[in-house]
Design a protein around this nucleic acid. Structure first.
Lengths: 135, 135
DNA sequence: GTACAGGTTTACGTTAACGTTAATTACAAT
DNA sequence: ATTGTAATTAACGTTAACGTAAACCTGTAC
């Protein structure tokens, strides 16, 4: 499913709806050099490869990369695909991201136990209130 | 370790160094109502409770909370803990946050496996490059 | 033919979380 | 007395990722 051939075209609004973003965002990504759709007259026309690019941009964002970082990856891939240099740069970026995620996991665990404490104290005080020990 | 008594005081620069942020940031947090250190003359003086607050702010940030959200949590925590209404509101709030954290945990785990995939493909291609299968 | 639903460019506005001077104060050491 | 280090307030500057008009074209529906 979700498999288009190389002829199928999309208007900017279609892609916007599909990925639940605004046309403005898509134009912005183009302005930042992340996409370059063709045109019919003055209207942008997107092929499936452009659609895939957009998907990659959004996935990069979900992974916490900035648009500039995504562009860096695109540029590297476009200029020298499958080069050892590009692949190693990619590995480095993923490793950095992994470190951030590890830190977040740790933080979440600490926060959760703190929430446990707060909750326990709340329940205790509530129980005392109901027993009438405090007005 | 890292255990200070309630008398120990800190200058703004000390805290900045300890948490690897700038004094400007600490003043900004105060300006946003997240801290209120005492003073000697016109200089800010931080006690351990302030230091703990700062730690919590930074942890919240790492978790993706805005300063405004952190402030909301602080306000709730600080507000009168003697009323049953307040306590129940607090419980509701912590339960909501807990749900958010659970979701984040899930997201992070998915992202990590995605990174695993990317990394695995990279290493594989690198290995092929080294075996000379690709020019 | 006119309304309308899309598309277009240009350009200024917005928000968060600080950065960056500037001008001043205060204590500590040389 | 001067130099150095750390602190202060006030206020304007910055970045990312768009939002939001304004003013325009353009093909289809009625």
């Amino acid at each position: 499913m979700n498999n288009y051939d190389d002829e199928t075209t999309f208007a900017i609004g279609e892609l916007a709806r599909e990925f639940d973003i605004t046309p403005r965002s898509i134009r912005f990504y183009e302005e930042q050099g992340l996409m370059s759709p063709s045109r019919t007259g003055q209207n942008r026309v997107y092929l499936n490869k452009d659609r895939v690019r957009l998907k990659l941009i959004l996935r990069g964002k979900r992974l916490g990369f900035s648009l500039a970082e995504v562009k860096t990856l695109f540029d590297m891939y476009d200029s020298n695909p499958n080069s050892a240099v590009q692949l190693e740069a990619m590995l480095e970026m993923t490793e950095q991201k992994r470190a951030v995620l590890r830190q977040q996991l740790e933080d979440i665990q600490m926060l959760m136990t703190e929430l446990d404490d707060v909750e326990a104290r709340c329940r205790e005080e509530l129980a005392e209130l109901k027993r009438g020990k405090i007005a």
